[in-house]
């Protein structure tokens, strides 16, 4: 699992950062949906979609390098889709021997694989721009605006608040483990004992972490009750969406619909 426990939010002065988070969330989701709906092999549409997300990336002042580095996350998963190159289609493109077998790559399979890879890459860029240009509290407001249940939004908020606190605790535990696991100069075996033993140590630390979480939640509960918490989740009303934001939303959605129509018309 990749743990980028640092807050991905990068504050910048950019029109993308300044956009109403609700509009940004909806547009990001609409973009990903458009990417998903774009037919296999509609290369011009993929190209235009790429141009759109790159433009937004440039506008966001986050740096294309930063966005691409974070977008690499989805890359390993592509391995799962590689086999479809060899199992799908009729038009043989290439083949090479593999032991007693011969692997044949098909044009249709390749097109499908490339489409999946592109879809995945484009979508993750949109997600990166969203997360890096919107502070999490703003994202929470956006989630409330698109009618995600209050309790769930409250959970997201609490988890995010204590993520950093508990990750710090976990890091301290791991540092303490590392400080006590010496390794001989001529270590033949993997240091630190058997896998079961290591798992047990990790499990003990996890248990420790959970116990602290329980105790902390008791204290948080008291701090909430002391300020009048009664079990109901309350929140301040959301501000109105400005007309400029509505325009951006409408413009963005129209652009995406046009791209989609373009794809359907030519490659449907």
């Amino acid at each position: 699992m990749h743990i980028h426990f640092l807050d991905p939010f990068r504050p910048r002065l950019s029109p993308v950062h300044a956009l109403d988070p609700r509009v940004k969330l909806v547009l990001a989701l609409a973009y990903i949906l458009t990417v998903a709906l774009t037919p296999v092999g509609a290369w011009p549409v993929y190209f235009l979609l790429l141009a759109v997300i790159l433009s937004v990336g440039i506008l966001s002042a986050l740096g294309l390098g930063f966005i691409q580095r974070r977008a690499l996350l989805a890359l390993p998963f592509m391995l799962a889709a590689v086999p479809i190159i060899f199992t799908n289609g009729e038009t043989a493109l290439f083949s090479f021997p593999l032991g007693t077998w011969t692997l044949t790559g098909y044009a249709e399979g390749l097109a499908r694989f490339a489409s999946v890879a592109l879809k995945s890459w484009l979508s993750v860029q949109a997600a990166v721009v969203l997360a890096s240009s919107t502070s999490f509290p703003d994202l929470l407001q956006a989630m409330r605006a698109i009618r995600i249940p209050r309790l769930l939004v409250a959970m997201f908020g609490l988890m995010w608040r204590y993520l950093f606190v508990l990750v710090d605790e976990a890091l301290r535990l791991m540092r303490a483990r590392a400080a006590r696991s010496g390794q001989g100069a001529e270590a033949v075996h993997r240091s630190g004992g058997s896998m079961a033993w290591q798992a047990r140590v990790a499990g003990g630390m996890a248990g420790n972490l959970f116990l602290r979480a329980f105790e902390r939640s008791d204290r948080i509960y008291m701090a909430m009750v002391a300020r009048g918490y009664d079990g109901e989740i309350r929140s301040l009303p959301l501000s109105a969406i400005g007309s400029g934001s509505w325009l951006t939303l409408a413009g963005g959605l129209i652009l995406l619909i046009l791209l989609l129509l373009f794809g359907f018309l030519l490659w449907g």
């Binding site: 699992m1 743990i3 426990f5 309790l151 409250a154 959970m155 908020g157 609490l158 988890m159 995010w160 608040r161 204590y162 993520l163 606190v165 508990l166 990750v167 605790e169 976990a170 890091l171 535990l173 791991m174 990790a202 630390m205 996890a206 972490l209 959970f210 602290r212 979480a213 329980f214 902390r216 939640s217 948080i220 509960y221 909430m224 079990g231 989740i233």
Partner: peptide, 18 residues
């Protein structure tokens, strides 16, 4: 409510103990 929120954070943190 606080318990679930903090435990979610603990699970996330616990996923680092690999």
């Amino acid at each position: 409510v606080p318990l679930m929120g903090v435990l979610a954070a603990a699970i996330f943190a616990g996923q680092m103990l690999n």
